[in-house]
Amino acid sequence: MNLTLYVWRQKNASDKGKMERYDARDISSHMSFLEMLDVVNEDLTEKGIEPIAFDHDCREGICGMCSLMINGIAHGPEPGTTVCQLHMRHFKDGDSIYIEPWRARAFPVIKDLIVDRSAFERIQHAGGFISINTGGAPDANALPIAKKKADLAMDAAACIGCGACVASCPNASAMLFVSAKVTQFANLPQGRIEAAERVQKMVAQMDLEGFGNCTNHYECEAVCPKEINIRFIGQMNREFMKAKTGLG
């Protein structure tokens, strides 16, 4: 199939950047979206044009590196799918495709479609861990955890930190990401010990990074490739209130 691409091109962080039009020729419907971009880049290189820079790593849908706004939707039109797992069969011959980087004050563009997501790292460093003495691995089931709680923690832990929640949020808020990182620990006994301190520190760092405020649009949940539920934002709010009031 043949496609027309409109791609954001920006030399570096200080460049103004603009949309450029490229033709993608002879694309197989079996290709992933990133493989399609690889083909376009080969073509551009042959023509002496700088290839399009975009983030990618595992190409298995688990690392959270790929991060493209495709036709106005983070990770493209398929729900619960990262860009690398999005296949060209979901597009039609002759389609026009807009490809833009994540847009947020806290995610400045480094080059073309690559943004700096180290704000997420700094939020993690602020409290997204448990302090525990290392040693031999504890026996399985030595610490009883209710199945419901374990499942909740696992659901939250599915977050791969790609930033699609921020990209799709009308307010560029990071609350879905932060809530997943807060609650994956808050739902487990090992995480309870530092729960109050963790939620306060991570939320403070989130605000410091310049993300917007959550106003319950739920666009984040709709685009999340790991389908993180917005119930975790509600739980984070409760954790935050408990921590600030000293109750619970």
Binding site: G72, I73, E100, R103, S168, P170, H217, E219, E221
Partner: peptide, 11 residues
Amino acid sequence: ISYKRQESIET
């Protein structure tokens, strides 16, 4: 910087 194209799914 706003998107050139942005769709709403849920809101």
